[in-house]
C-alpha cells in the first residue's frame, strides 16, 4: 500500500475511519458486502464512501488522549498548587496560566468567567495536538501497521474535522454571547448598521442590506478562516515532513531543520487560535 511515493503520501494522509458501508458495496479487497456493515475503512475510497456518519477514530483518540493529558496535568498541579514557593512543574503551569490570563485581560474587557479557561484549553490542547507533528512521521503509523491497523494519523490538527469543530464551537459561543449580551436586536444592529451608517432614516434603511451582506460575509469568514488556518498550517507542515521522510538518509538534516522551524509554527498557531478566540468573543461583548 505504501509501495509508491503517491501511495505512501496518501496512506499517511488518510485517517483511520470507522463507518457504515452499504449493502452491495465492493470493498478494497474485492469482496462484496451482502448487507450494510459497520467497519473500518480499508482504503481511501471506502473512507470517502462512508459519508457523514463515520468517525475518524485516530483523530478522536489522539485528541481525547491529549485533552485528558492537558486537563489531567493541570488538575494534578492545580490540586497541589501552593501560594508559597512553587515547584518546577507548578512554575511551568503557572507561567502558562498567567500568559493566558494576561492575553485574556488584554483582548477581552467584559466580564465572563468562561473566556479565560476557554482560552487556556484552546491554547494548551491545540499546542499538544500540534506537538504530535514533531514525532517522526513513520513511528506511530509504522507501529499501527505492525499490529494490523491500516491507517493512523497522529496529528489531530491536520484533520479539518478537528480544527473546524473547534472554530465552529467558538463561533457558536460567539453567537450565544452576542444574543445574551445585546439581544437579538443588538445582534441585528451590529450586523445591519455598520460599517455604513447615516443620520437620515431613509438612507439608514437603504444601507441596511449592504451592511448585512458585508457583515455576514465577514462574520462567516471568521470561523472558517480560524479553523482552516490551523488546519492548513498543520497539514502543510505534515505534508512536508512526509515528503522529507521519502528522500532517504538525506532527510536527517532536512528533517531536523524543518522540525526546528515547526516548533515555532506549532506554538504560533496555537497562540493565534487562542488570541482570535479571545478577540472574537471580546468583539461581541463590546459596543462599537
Amino acid at each position: 500500500m505504501a509501495g509508491t511515493a503517491s501511495g505512501y503520501i496518501k496512506h499517511h494522509l488518510q485517517n483511520l475511519t470507522y463507518g457504515q458501508l452499504p449493502a452491495g458495496y465492493e470493498r478494497a479487497d474485492g469482496s462484496v458486502l451482502d448487507s450494510p456493515a459497520w467497519t473500518f475503512a480499508g482504503s481511501v475510497r471506502e473512507a470517502a464512501d462512508m459519508g457523514f456518519w463515520a468517525i475518524h477514530v485516530d483523530s478522536m483518540f489522539w485528541s481525547l488522549l491529549l485533552g485528558f493529558l492537558f486537563v489531567g496535568l493541570f488538575r494534578f498541579v492545580g490540586k497541589r498548587a501552593t501560594s508559597g514557593a512553587p515547584g518546577a512543574l507548578q512554575n511551568v503551569i503557572e507561567i502558562l496560566v498567567e500568559f493566558v490570563d494576561n492575553s485574556v485581560k488584554d483582548g477581552f474587557h467584559g466580564r465572563n468567567p468562561v473566556i479565560a479557561p476557554l482560552a487556556l484549553t484552546v491554547f494548551c490542547w491545540i499546542f499538544l495536538m500540534n506537538l504530535m507533528d514533531l514525532i517522526p512521521v513513520d513511528w506511530i503509523p509504522g507501529l499501527a501497521t505492525l499490529i494490523g491497523i491500516p491507517y493512523m494519523k497522529v496529528v489531530p490538527s491536520t484533520d479539518p474535522n478537528i480544527t473546524m469543530s473547534m472554530s465552529l464551537s467558538v463561533f457558536m459561543m460567539m453567537i450565544f454571547y452576542w444574543i445574551k449580551v445585546k439581544g437579538i436586536g443588538g445582534l441585528f444592529g451590529d450586523l445591519a448598521l455598520h460599517p455604513f451608517s447615516s443620520k437620515n432614516l431613509f438612507f439608514k434603511v437603504l444601507l441596511m442590506p449592504v451592511n448585512l451582506l458585508l457583515e455576514t460575509v465577514s462574520l462567516i469568514a471568521k470561523p472558517i478562516s480560524l479553523g482552516l488556518r490551523l488546519f492548513g498550517n498543520m497539514y502543510a507542515g505534515e505534508l512536508i515532513f512526509i515528503l522529507i521522510a521519502m528522500i532517504g538518509y538525506a532527510q536527517l538534516p532536512l528533517h531536523f531543520g524543518w522540525a526546528v522551524l515547526h516548533i515555532l509554527v506549532i506554538t504560533l498557531q496555537a497562540y493565534i487560535f487562542m488570541t482570535l478566540t479571545i478577540v472574537y468573543l471580546g468583539m461581541v461583548h463590546e459596543d462599537h
Partner: peptide
Amino acid sequence: MNINATILGQTIAFAFFVWFC
C-alpha cells in the same frame, strides 16, 4: 480528509474539556 461525524465528536470533547477546565 472527509468532513464527517468526527466534527461532532470533537465538539463534544471540546465542550467537555472547556467545562472541566
